[in-house]
Simulated assay, not measured.
Amino acid sequence: MNIKISDVANLPSRFGNFKVKAFKEGQKEHLVIYAKELDEIPVVRVHSECLTGDAIGSLKCDCRDQLEYALSLIGEKGGMVIYLRQEGRNIGLLNKINAYALQDKGLDTVEANHQLGFAADERTYDIVTYILHHFGIKKIKLLTNNPDKINSICDVEIVERLPIIMKSNKYNEDYLDVKRDAMGHLL
């Protein structure tokens, strides 16, 4: 892997005072947000970018709620959020909006991706193991519902999986059902 790594900077936020470091992998720039002192077995959240949810507050997903929960947790108890630039399950913003349009016509999130010629989930997590090794982390408590994230982390022991269950709403109930039933998420 040809990875460029930034310096460490302070990031005070409404969730706590963090340190941040960026990792550039090809054209993608990922961000690691972490507590100043990492435990020997830190809580780690791997979060994929969701502009519509994270920044705009879309109710079609639970992404923002999961991100804010994770940031609040590490702000209070320590740990790390690895923010991966993989918009729309790594199909990009333009294709994600096209998938939204197909969902408006009755397709579910997986069907929409397939209609556009993509797998249900195009994300990869190779960079996660690289980042954890960079920080010297050998064991983690992984904050996730996604079995793909669990299965993709190599050479780092997942001591515990911590669920991250957010309250559903009328706009994302079907989406969450598809994540559980079609994608195997642990909801």
Rank of each mutant, 00 (worst) to 15 (best):
I41W: 05
E76C: 00
I127R: 07
D181S: 06
V8F: 11
E160G: 01
R14V: 14
R89E: 13
I33V: 15
I91Q: 02
P12G: 01
H30M: 12
Q66R: 04
D174I: 03
Q115K: 15
N151D: 14
L142E: 12
K4W: 10
K21A: 07
D39R: 12
F15W: 14
V43M: 11
I5F: 04
K170W: 12
Q86W: 06
E157F: 00
V128C: 08
E157N: 00
Q66E: 12
A101W: 02
N172I: 15
K170F: 13
I158Y: 05
G75Y: 12
R180D: 13
I33C: 01
I137F: 03
T124I: 05
Y83A: 08
I74A: 06
K24P: 01
I56W: 13
K36R: 11
R64A: 13
K19A: 08
L67N: 07
E160N: 05
Q103V: 03
E122R: 01
A120P: 06
G75P: 11
G184D: 12
K149A: 05
I91C: 02
N2R: 07
F135E: 13
R161A: 03
P12I: 02
E68C: 00
E76L: 06
D54P: 00
Q66K: 00
E49Q: 13
I56T: 11
K4D: 15
